[in-house]
Amino acid sequence: MDVKRAKAIYEAKDNIPVRLEGKPIWIEHVDEANGMATVQLGNNPLDTHTVRVDRLEEVHKLQ
């Protein structure tokens, strides 16, 4: 994923599924200047990590 898409997902009103290494995450913050994102793993608000946005994968639902 690129920085612009990560930022768009973060700002979206809809819930857009994203994964990190196959695990569901929530994007908490996007650092556009450095290409990094702070993400929450699963439903645990204390389990956050800062990772490169190119490690994030948007989950596309089948129509």
Rank of each mutant, 00 (worst) to 15 (best):
M1S: 14
D2C: 03
D2F: 02
V3F: 08
V3E: 05
V3W: 03
V3S: 12
K4A: 15
K4T: 11
R5T: 11
A6D: 03
K7H: 06
K7C: 03
K7F: 06
A8I: 02
A8M: 10
A8D: 12
I9Y: 01
I9R: 00
Y10C: 10
Y10D: 05
Y10M: 14
E11I: 00
A12T: 07
A12S: 15
K13M: 08
K13H: 12
K13S: 11
D14R: 12
I16K: 11
V18Q: 02
R19C: 09
E21V: 02
E21N: 13
G22A: 04
K23Q: 13
K23V: 06
P24N: 07
P24W: 02
I25V: 15
E28C: 07
E28Q: 10
E28A: 04
E28L: 09
H29N: 09
H29E: 13
D31S: 06
D31F: 10
D31L: 04
E32I: 04
E32R: 10
E32W: 02
A33W: 01
N34C: 03
G35V: 01
G35W: 00
M36P: 00
M36H: 03
M36T: 05
T38A: 10
V39M: 05
Q40D: 07
Q40E: 14
L41Y: 08
L41N: 03
G42K: 05
G42A: 07
N44V: 09
N44D: 15
P45A: 13
D47A: 15
D47S: 14
T48L: 07
T48W: 02
H49W: 12
H49R: 15
V51H: 02
V51E: 03
V53D: 03
V53G: 06
V53S: 05
R55I: 06
L56R: 02
L56P: 03
L56M: 10
E57D: 11
E57H: 11
E57M: 12
E58I: 11
E58G: 08
V59Q: 12
V59L: 10
V59F: 11
H60G: 00
K61Y: 09
K61R: 12
K61F: 07
L62H: 10
L62P: 01
L62D: 14
Q63L: 12
